[in-house]
Nucleic acid binder design. Structure first.
Length: 477
RNA sequence: CGGGGCAUGGCGCAGUUUGGUAGCGCGCUUGGUUUGGGACCAAGAGGUCGAGGGUUCGAAUCUCUCUGCCCCGACCA
């Protein structure tokens, strides 16, 4: 049969493949303003699943949601030097209110550190107020020159956690705790194995003492920074005058963190799992987890009756299920739900009724098999979704391991980077100059200093000096 | 910000070279027949040809200006 809605194969053109999935799986639409997209229901629902998971984790670890204003006065943004230098060049600025020119411009938040700091100054007075653990769900605006749906937009949706602590240790612990929640999210619901690690000084957040990251590896060998967690120390607090009286009656400065993930995660899901038939969604973020396809229902009333029973029993177990009773042909439906990445499909037709079974097909590996209609189908589905998530994770993990290559020389590094072989795992002296050289010559950056440090050499292949740590280099989105 | 491409119904395109009053495929609506890997017939709806100016009796088509989008690079979640 003809494929009248096929997409460009990933091998042919990854960029084209990616944007066609975004559009044809109905995740988003382009808007009239460059870099700003419409999050369509199917795409937004993925974000809602991610939100639901994280919101629960945040609250379970004692965080509260708040909402800060959209606009930042210039004076407030300028209070932390590194921070303003990092962000001001990519800010959108409001210069008029109504028809009147403003005395001082207002910045649309590119991130909300400054707003949180200003507020913290007001509400913190005693050690009894600490810790303060806030999170915000919102969108931010950064005037990007090059934009791609989900991966890089001028506006994106995210969450940003901002916390204050009495001790440095407690703040550091918070920073790592939140990073681990992100990593858990990868394994549990995104089916993406992240590499956790610390950013080099060159790559860390503007104003942070330490930045930690979760990095995903995409099928073209490029890395995608998927979430960050920062330890600020007391820098911001000092600049913004945040202080409290401790139990020894001494005025002290709290220790601060911030951490965030964004709708970029949707982009990483698309690239990590997608194939030439379209999107492949991991089951626990899929807006529809199971689609039911009736075959020849018109002259076989048993078919719809049975499917409605199945639908009800799935719903009663909290499974997100869609019964497509439209009069499109089954073939059309197969292709459609493959494009949309629905993890599991169940077909039921007269032949199945006769044989007292139904057919199921898994999206990610195409496995097809039958379940007896006497089975507890809901229980089977629950188990199958679990296996799918595990299978997708393991597949991605295998790719990650196979594409993390130890390099001992510049030539080997070059080979890995230029041929899209993935992460170049390298022993590094720790000098900025070597990092810069790699950036200049190969356009690759230090993605992170992974937590798993297993030294395999004793000198830096760039300068030949003594190596201090293992670093992963890659080109990045 | 450089380099390339594009702008004609919801989507994909033809028409532009050589000016003559807008067409095709998909999708959509209605009715009917269908349904095990993108069904078929019939009848319909839908377009100030990205915006503005100019040339002309007449502009999707020639011309000028502007705007937007996509892709590839340099910078960033």
């Amino acid at each position: 049969m003809k494929k009248n809605n096929a997409i460009t194969p990933r091998e042919t053109d990854m960029s084209k493949w990616y944007s066609e999935i975004c559009l044809k799986a109905e995740l988003m639409s382009y808007s009239k303003v460059k870099g700003f997209i419409v999050y369509r229901p199917y795409g937004y629902a993925i974000w809602e699943q991610i939100q639901a998971f994280l919101d629960k984790e945040f609250k379970a670890t004692g965080h509260q949601n708040v909402y800060m204003p959209l606009l930042i006065p210039q004076s407030l943004l300028e209070m932390e030097k590194e921070h303003v230098e990092g962000f001001a060049p990519e800010c959108a600025v409001v210069t008029k209110g109504g028809d009147k020119e403003l005395d001082s411009p207002l910045y649309i938040r590119p991130t909300s550190e400054t707003l949180f700091c200003d507020h913290f100054k007001d509400i913190l007075s005693s050690y009894r107020d600490l810790p303060i653990k806030y999170n915000q769900w919102c969108s931010v605006v950064r005037w990007e020159k090059t934009t791609r749906p989900f991966l890089r937009g001028s506006e994106f949706l995210w969450q940003e956690g901002h916390t204050l602590h009495r001790t440095a240790d407690e703040a550091k612990e918070e920073t790592l705790k939140m990073l681990k929640i992100y990593n858990k999210m990868g394994k549990d619901i995104l089916a993406i194995p992240f590499v956790m690690g610390r950013k080099t000084d060159k790559e860390k957040f503007a104003g942070a003492l330490e930045t930690y990251t979760i990095e995903a590896l995409m099928p073209d060998g490029q890395a995608l920074q998927s979430g960050t967690s920062h330890y600020f120390g007391q820098g911001f607090a000092e600049h913004y005058g945040i202080s409290y009286l401790d139990d020894d009656n001494v005025l002290k400065t709290p220790h601060q963190t911030s951490w965030g993930v964004s709708t970029r995660l949707i982009g990483s899901i698309i690239m990590e799992h997608g194939d030439d038939n379209g999107l492949v969604l991991p089951p626990y973020v899929a807006p529809t987890q199971v689609v039911l396809i009736p075959i020849r229902p018109a002259d076989n009333p048993e078919v719809m009756k049975k499917l409605k029973d199945i639908k009800e029993s799935l719903e009663s177990k909290g499974i997100r299920v869609l019964l497509d009773d439209s009069n499109k042909s089954p073939g059309w439906k197969y292709a459609e739900y493959e494009m949309k990445g629905v993890p599991l499909r169940i077909d039921l037709g007269p032949k199945d009724i006769q044989q007292n079974h139904c057919m199921y097909a898994r999206r990610f590996d195409g496995k097809k098999d039958f379940w007896s209609l006497d089975d507890d189908i809901a229980q089977n589905v629950i188990e199958e979704l679990k296996q799918i998530n595990k299978g997708m994770y393991n597949k991605a993990l295998k790719y990650l391991l196979e594409h993390t290559v130890e390099v001992h020389s510049f030539e080997e590094l070059k080979d890995v980077i230029e041929n899209g072989k993935g992460y170049a795992k390298m022993m590094w002296c720790g000098d900025r100059s070597c990092e810069d050289e790699i950036k200049n010559k190969l356009n690759a950056t230090a993605r992170c200093i992974p937590f798993d440090q297993e030294p395999f050499d004793d000198k830096c292949p760039i300068c030949g000096k003594k190596a201090k740590q293992v670093v992963l280099f890659a080109r990045a989105y």
